[in-house]
Structure formats: C-alpha cells, structure tokens
Design a binder for these strands. Structure first.
Lengths: 236, 236
DNA sequence: CAACCATTGAAACAAACGTTTGACTTCCGA
DNA sequence: TCGGAAGTCAAACGTTTGTTTCAATGGTTG
C-alpha cells in the first residue's frame, strides 16, 4: 500500500467518525475498521489517539482561520467601511465552505461544529490558541460595525453567534424543516413520529441559502438594541 | 443509609458529571465515587447506564416542558396578542431557571445544553418525544408573532435559536467576556493566554441580565427580513 | 423471635479500550 | 546482492468499561 495512503485513510475515517459520534465516543478500532488499516498504524503515524485528534483538528482548522483573516484583509483593503453583513459573512462562510465545495451537513462541516461542542479538555486546549488571535481582531471589526455597543455587549453576542453557527453545523443532520415536511395548510392531526426539533433529517439542500439565512439572522441579532444599564428595567 | 438517599445521591452525581463531561465520557465508576455509593447500586436502582441517563433526563426535562406549556397557556389566557419577546421568553426562561433558582452555568443548566449537543443516538432517541408536541405548539405562537414569515423560514430560525440557547447553556463556563477581562482602553499588546472565545471562564454572574440579553438577541434575529425568494439575489 | 424482602457491599465477569511488541514484508541505496 | 530503514501485520499488553454475582446487612412484618 502506498505509504502515504494509510495516513490519509486514517485521517479521512477519523474525520468522519469524530464528526458523527464525537471524539470520546469514537474508538481507534472503529476508525481503523472504517479505514481498513491495521490498529498499530495509528500509533505509528500519529503516536496516540490524542495525536490523531490534534492532527485532524490542525488539518482543517488552520485553513478556516486563514481564510477568515484573508476575508478581513479584503474588507480592510477595500477602503470603504464594511457592512455588518459583510463582517458576519467573513467569519461564517469559511466555516461553511470547508474543503472546497463541501455541502452543509458534510463530514468536515459537522466536525467544525463538533469541536466547539465537545466538552473534552484536550479539545478545548487544542482549540484555544487556534482562534484567540482571530477572535481579538474580529471583535474590532464588529466594534466598528456596531458603534453603539460596548465591548461587553459585543462579546456576549459573539458568544451567542458562535452557538448559532456551531449548532447549525454540528447538527445539520437535524435540519429539514418540520414545516417543510407537513404541507402548509394541512396542520390537521398529530402524526405519530414527528421531529422534536422544528427541522430534522438530512437536507439543508441549498448551502447558499443556508448561508444567506444565517447571515441575515445573525446580522439582525447583532443589531438588537443595547441592553438597558438598569437591570430592573429589563423584565417584561 | 436512607433507602431513597442512594438514588438521589446517584442522580445528583450523574447530573453533575454528565453536564461537565458529556454522557459517553462519564463512567459509572466516576459517578459512584462522586456519590459515595456502591457500584452495584446503579444497576439495582436504574438497571443500566442507559437507564440512569434516561432517568436523569426525564427528571428535569419534563418540568421544563411543563413550565413552557404553562407560560404559553398564560399568554393565551391573557387575551391580548403576545409580543415576540414574550413568546421567546416563554421558551427560554424555563430552561434558564432550572431547579428553582439555579444560576446560569449551574449543573442543571449546563446539562440542559449538553443533551442537545451530545451526538449519542440514545440521547436523541430519548429527547425527541419529549419536545415534539411542544415544538409544534410553539411554532404556532411564533407564526402569529411573525405573520410575514413562512413556516419554513420560522423553522430555520427556530433551529438557529435552539443552537444559540443550548450553546450558551452548555458552555456557560466559557462565558466571561474577553472584553471584560482586559480594560476597555488598553488593547495594547497580546497577552500570552487569552481565550479563543470572546467570553470565557465561569461567571454569567447576573442570570437576569443574561436572560434579557438572550431574549433581545433572539427577538431581533427572528425579526430579520425574510430571505428573498430569488436565490441569486442573496449574495452580497 | 423468626422470616422476609429490600438494599448494600466486595469481588469478579467478559468485553472493549488505548497502547506496545516483535516478526514480517517491501523497497531503495550501497 | 546485500543491508537497513520504513511500513505493515497479528497478537498480546495492562486498564477501564458496563454488568453480574452472591453473601452480608437492615428494618418490617408475621
């Protein structure tokens, strides 16, 4: 077998299974079975399971971060002040377009969500340095697009936005609409097996529209009026 | 030992550890160590690990769903049409106020997020019937508050909103603002260990303000203008 | 007091986990 | 042609996993 082939097969299988089941729940044996390679090959090429995880993450997080920086560079070079939609898109699209023309719901895109959602300490440790420098720069772009909001307010909303994106990415398989399943007018009776989430099962068939939906959703959310400084005035 | 005490101790320990590490990554032995009970007690009282998981989930999902229904009932009984903010709050607050006066970031609240984020098939299987009936009813409330949006559009935004909430709940421990850590004016140099996320570590000190922030964020997002029906017109 | 059922305790079970070993190919440069 | 590094393979390593067993315990009921 091609010496480099084994490495790639392992990485591809690991990406797929990590995305589907998470890191802790995926065994090395299931990975080598999927990749049809020997168990020892993992330790030969990657040292350990953690080494494999680290490699899988590095393999595709770096391109995303670099592409995000590139898009911010482009907005900066253009001269005119970027719109909020453009700023949101510069952060969102590189994650949605992982691996050239990957569909939303594909392995890599789900993995992109998974890494934010997996509570394993090792994952967080790997993740933090990858994103910290971009995060600082990105906050400045948001700040300029949202001059009325404080850093604190923007930070909260960025946190919310990360949740929106990672969940959408990680659970794209839940993303066919309940509303799309049952016909518009016919909300007559309760069918036996309806989804718990408003959307479910496969689909997100049009990645471009998904991206546009997310951008519109998040841009509007970022533009929400600032919270009153009087805590007692916020209750309905 | 009080016969019922063992059950409660196991459930409490399981809730805590499941919330921190996820379901797959938490062993029964770590649970019984935390609870200071015998390993066999888990199987005696709950049959299996899956039985324990099922019980932990049922224990606190049901109250949340019931409270959500109760709030929708209250809005319905009031007569006047509820605002979008009230509709969002009716769905959000019961999850944020888990277990009487639980703080955001507390065990139960994080667990509430975790169950949506854990990719284990058993979890999804348990989760689906719990939420499906509420989901259908809730969509109607959103529909009335957002008369300009189609079911499909509302479904997508509901999906996004679930992501926002569950991530915020599940990763409340990341939620201290980067902006709050470094002083407003002093964004001088790059400190060595800054967080990858704009917010990190503990806090969300004021649950009431967190709720208000989330409601404002999501209500504004739901009110985003509908996507153009022409797919080619959505690109910037 | 005796019998009983519910509960707990320590120990062991088989299976699956990540990891290591050592013999076996394969192939390129000397 | 030979030697050795690179890579693969089956097998086993010691742990840890969920689960089971069975004796000991405790209180309640006859």
């Amino acid at each position: 077998m091609d010496p480099q082939d084994t490495q790639k097969r392992i990485l591809a299988a690991a990406e797929k299974l990590f995305a589907e089941r998470g890191f802790a729940a995926t065994s090395l044996r299931s990975i080598v079975a999927e990749a049809r390679v020997n168990l020892a090959a993992v330790h030969y090429h990657f040292g350990s399971k953690e080494g494999l995880i680290r490699e899988v993450l590095a393999q595709f997080i770096r391109p995303v971060t670099e592409e995000r920086h590139r898009r911010l560079d482009a907005l900066e070079a253009r001269g005119t002040e970027p719109t909020l939609e453009e700023v949101v898109d510069a952060w969102l699209s590189p994650a949605l377009e992982l691996g050239s023309n990957a569909e939303v719901g594909s392995t890599l895109v789900r993995l992109m969500g998974r890494i934010h959602l997996d509570p394993l300490p090792e994952i967080e440790e790997i993740l933090i340095p990858q994103f910290e420098s971009f995060g600082r720069r990105y906050m400045e772009f948001l700040r300029r697009a949202l001059p009325d909001l404080s850093y604190e307010e923007i930070g909260w909303r960025m946190h919310f936005a990360i949740g929106t994106m990672t969940y959408t990415l990680g659970f794209a398989h839940r993303a066919q609409m309940q509303a799309a399943v049952r016909a518009e007018g016919a909300e007559d009776a309760a069918e036996p097996a309806t989804p718990c989430h408003p959307m479910k099962r496969a689909a997100m068939s049009d990645p471009e529209r998904t991206r546009a939906r997310l951008v519109a959703f998040l841009a509007a959310a970022f533009r929400a009026p600032a919270l009153s400084t009087d805590p007692t005035a916020t209750r309905k």
